[in-house]
Design a protein around this nucleic acid. Sequence first.
DNA 1: GCAGCATGGTTACCATGCTAACTAAGCCTG
DNA 2: CAGGCTTAGTTAGCATGGTAACCATGCTGC
Lengths: 149, 149
Amino acid sequence: MFFLKDLPSRQMLENYKKRFPEMSVDHVGAGLKLLRHASILLRRIETYFAGHKLSQTRFLILVVLDREGKGGGLLAKEIAGKLDISRPIVTNTLKSMKEMGLLTICPHADDGRAKWITLTEAGREKLGTVLPDYYSIIHNFMIHEAEEL
Amino acid sequence: MFFLKDLPSRQMLENYKKRFPEMSVDHVGAGLKLLRHASILLRRIETYFAGHKLSQTRFLILVVLDREGKGGGLLAKEIAGKLDISRPIVTNTLKSMKEMGLLTICPHADDGRAKWITLTEAGREKLGTVLPDYYSIIHNFMIHEAEEL
DNA sequence: GCAGCATGGTTACCATGCTAACTAAGCCTG
DNA sequence: CAGGCTTAGTTAGCATGGTAACCATGCTGC
């Protein structure tokens, strides 16, 4: 996360460019703004999720499972791939989400190593509960605080 | 961090909008891209820093201390404020950075509670070593992977 | 068909962030 | 100047991320 409140001024970047002329003041300036904006938005979303006993990762697991439709599911491995997170954290997060009743974990029929993950009705409902405000947090942030991007 | 590889398609957002018309497909779509791009860039920067025994937070502490100029310094409290991170993590991070020889921690002359933090020469050098590639990672990312922002 | 490699998942351990509760020092008010 | 509030920093405990090393199962090629 990147929470530096005072980004380097244009002047500071210009000075820096004198030493390293291959750098573009505009691009680096935009990159720093990107990092700061996203960090603020991420923090806001995490705070919102905390009130629903969710986290960014738990939420995204609900999303990818929901995309498989009713009756569909995914292997733990596939979830790690779609979310680009490490397998151990998938194991942990799935375990806690199972305890919360959001999903089920079954041994896979064809492959004794794999686990078959499906959403429960409660999981699907949870996602439906959380989505509107999730989108609205992003919507409001983009409208009111990130116009200059 | 937000690492969902396949962002919701425009179609999915349109469908969602039918239920919640106050949402803007464009703004939410842009917000999701913002989150994903920044997460990728953040991860890349953290990987780079790891090779220098730094982290985003350690690096930003070097930056704000360097801004105070030679002979200048900051209170731990001020660092927490400028970086927008919690005081406990400042305590921890400063301790490890002191052990690395990047900065000094002295009791403050006028206030027995406060700690006065200054960069060492090694700290200033470390920042100088790391900055060019830091900017160049951001520069390249913005040019090659985030044009559509 | 069994030895050895590949693959899915888990365990153990570490780093980094948070909040809550604590200590110690400064200040302020009766 | 004593009691109580405020402030700076630390400690303790939790959550979430990562990598490395480890099982257990599946696959492959001699």
